[in-house]
Amino acid sequence: MEDILTYTGYRQYIADYYADKKAKSAFTWQEFARAAGFSSPVYLKYVSEGRFNLSDEAAFRVAVAMHLVDYEQEYFCEMVKFDHAKKDSDKKAAFNKMLAIAEAHKAKILEGEAFRFFGDWKNPVLRELAPAMPGAKPLALAHACRAKVSAAEVTETLNFLVKAGLLQKDEDGNYKQTEKSVTTGPMEVTPLAVRNLHRQMGEFALDTIEGVPQDKRQFSGVTVGVTREAYEEIVQEIAEFRKRVIAIATRDSATDEVYRLNMQFFPMTNKGENKKG
């Protein structure tokens, strides 16, 4: 499903959200309505069709039911205001607010440079670290990284990030991010690059078990037996949690340290594969 910031109509977003959920599970309009606090099982269906409207309070409940967080909730509610506005001035005000939210939180979509960006841990780390250390030379940035990296590698990485439009360098040599976040484009090669990044970050995580004090890291895990339906639901919960973490992390412009959050949910048995054989 497309990012909410690409929408201007809240009814279409509701319809697409339902269609996306329906394609992945036995999701129903009744379940959707109940989650948003409506007694009528078809209320949101009628809203998506333009037959009913949403109040401001109901808009927020629907946003929460769709697991929207932070600026996403705000954007959705502004879309509702934009759709319902009677006066041109109110409609313009709502639309300008939508534009401001989208501009502040838009993500850089990587296509041609995706393999290189996601293929090396230094790219995402230095994209976060360089703006947090204004005026720092490559050697200082290299020393700030826990993983071993040379000043020359830092310089090469920064040059790539600027060339790819992921960082901007001012006349004083300071860097700033061009976008709040980075996402991948529709590339066949991207999964390979992302797998490589996951592998690198997983190795770094192992090193921190002994190398980082417990009050500066968080490790936890649980082993459970699940059905395929439960697996799909858990994967969705992980995706929603990741969105909430990003919203918290991007709320402030300041950065004290660069952290990596690995979310892993993988099989420890192969019963299903044995059945197929």
Rank of each mutant, 00 (worst) to 15 (best):
F118N: 02
E128G: 12
V182I: 15
T178A: 04
A151W: 01
K163P: 03
L110R: 01
A152G: 14
E188K: 12
D120H: 08
K148L: 08
C145Q: 10
K148Q: 12
K176M: 13
Y175N: 04
A144T: 00
A130E: 08
V182S: 06
V154K: 14
D120C: 06
T157P: 04
T183E: 10
F115C: 04
F117C: 06
E113M: 05
A140R: 08
T184A: 15
G173Y: 11
E128L: 15
M187T: 14
G119W: 00
L161R: 12
E179R: 14
G112N: 04
L166C: 03
A114V: 06
V162F: 02
D170P: 02
K180N: 05
V154H: 15
L141C: 01
V154S: 14
T157F: 07
L139A: 15
M133Q: 08
G173V: 08
G119N: 01
T155K: 14
G119P: 00
G112Q: 06
N123M: 06
R127K: 07
P131A: 13
E156G: 03
E156V: 05
V189L: 12
A151M: 07
L158A: 10
K176S: 15
V125E: 04
P138E: 09
P131C: 14
G165L: 05
L141W: 00
L141A: 01
D170V: 09
A140V: 01
P124V: 03
Q177A: 11
P138Y: 14
V125Q: 03
K122W: 02
E113I: 02
E188W: 03
I109M: 12
Q177W: 02
H143C: 02
F115E: 13
K169T: 06
Q168V: 09
N159Y: 11
L139Y: 09
T178V: 07
K169Y: 03
L167S: 05
A132K: 01
T157H: 06
Y175R: 12
L167K: 05
L158K: 11
L139K: 13
F115G: 03
L166G: 04
Y175V: 02
M187L: 12
T178C: 13
T184D: 10
V162A: 02
W121D: 08
P134F: 10
G165K: 04
L139T: 09
L161A: 13
Q168K: 14
P186M: 13
R146T: 04
K163G: 05
G165H: 03
I109C: 07
G135S: 10
A152L: 11
V154G: 15
A144N: 00
K169M: 14
K137L: 09
L166F: 06
A132W: 00
A136Q: 04
